[in-house]
């Protein structure tokens, strides 16, 4: 299977503190990979490096052969863990923005998703509830036909009902042509859709395996294993 993302020996420090150390993993086309770890374990650092938001790192990061930058970014659909679309935008303007800059954006699909959520297009994003805002962001991101979707804590900040909806949305828009890399510290909800799990502790990979294989070999759920491994940290 073609490798969409390849990371080898990635190391990034902030001054004396080392955020991540010797990170190596691939994301293959058609797979959903979970970067799992408690807050501060380095998930966002890895993601920001992939997106070109952090320069000055050691090791190699390549997205279909491109280093992080504008060309790579045209193939990646990114959902950061902050509200990156100005909240005073109307929903319609946000859609227009994506359509303007991303060739692979499917505005019709985005509008359909928002209509299904009963979100009127002429509302300002900030007038929506927090959970709704997350859903709007996610809808826009998943309406792109990108090679790689990078989702940083897509379910972190929302209520359990919204979580289910978000996971459902991710699955609905995943067509196996691209790949998904997502990070979270809430494992139970997300484990059914993961192909590969990567456990991250204090900047290092401590586990990297196929999820069903873990279940077979260890007779445990991913969530249980996660809690066990991180019981001193979480």
């Amino acid at each position: 299977m073609e490798k969409i993302l390849q990371i080898s020996n990635l190391t990034k420090s902030y001054g004396k503190t080392q955020a991540v150390r010797d990170i190596t993993f691939d994301v293959k086309k058609g797979s959903i990979v979970g970067l799992l770890g408690p807050n501060g374990s380095g998930k966002t650092t890895i993601i920001k490096t992939i997106m070109g938001l952090l320069s000055d790192y050691g090791g190699n990061v390549s997205i279909k052969g491109e280093a992080p930058g504008p060309i790579a970014n045209s193939r990646i659909s990114y959902l950061p863990d902050v509200a990156h679309i100005p909240t005073w935008f109307k929903v319609s303007r946000a859609i227009a923005f994506f359509a303007d800059f991303y060739e692979d954006f499917d505005a019709v699909r985005a509008e359909a998703m928002l209509a299904a959520m009963k979100i009127p297009l002429d509302k300002k994003i900030k007038s929506l509830s927090r959970g709704m805002q997350e859903k709007v962001q996610l809808s826009l991101v998943m309406s792109r036909r990108a090679d790689l979707y990078v989702l940083d804590e897509p379910i972190g900040a929302v209520d359990p009902a919204s979580r289910e909806f978000i996971i459902d949305t991710i699955l609905k828009n995943f067509d196996g042509e691209g790949a998904i890399l997502l990070s979270t510290h809430i494992v139970a909800d997300i484990e059914p859709i993961l192909d590969v799990a990567i456990f991250l502790r204090e900047g290092e990979i401590i586990l990297h395996d196929d999820v069903d294989k873990i279940r077979e070999e260890k007779a445990t759920s991913l969530d249980q294993l996660f809690r066990e491994v991180f019981k001193n940290v979480v």
Binding site: M51, L53, I76, H84, I85, F101, Y102
Partner: peptide, 14 residues
């Protein structure tokens, strides 16, 4: 700021 996550990840050169 927060919008920087958008500005700096757009498929446009810096």
């Amino acid at each position: 700021g927060k919008a920087g996550h958008l500005a700096m990840t757009m498929p446009v050169s810096r």
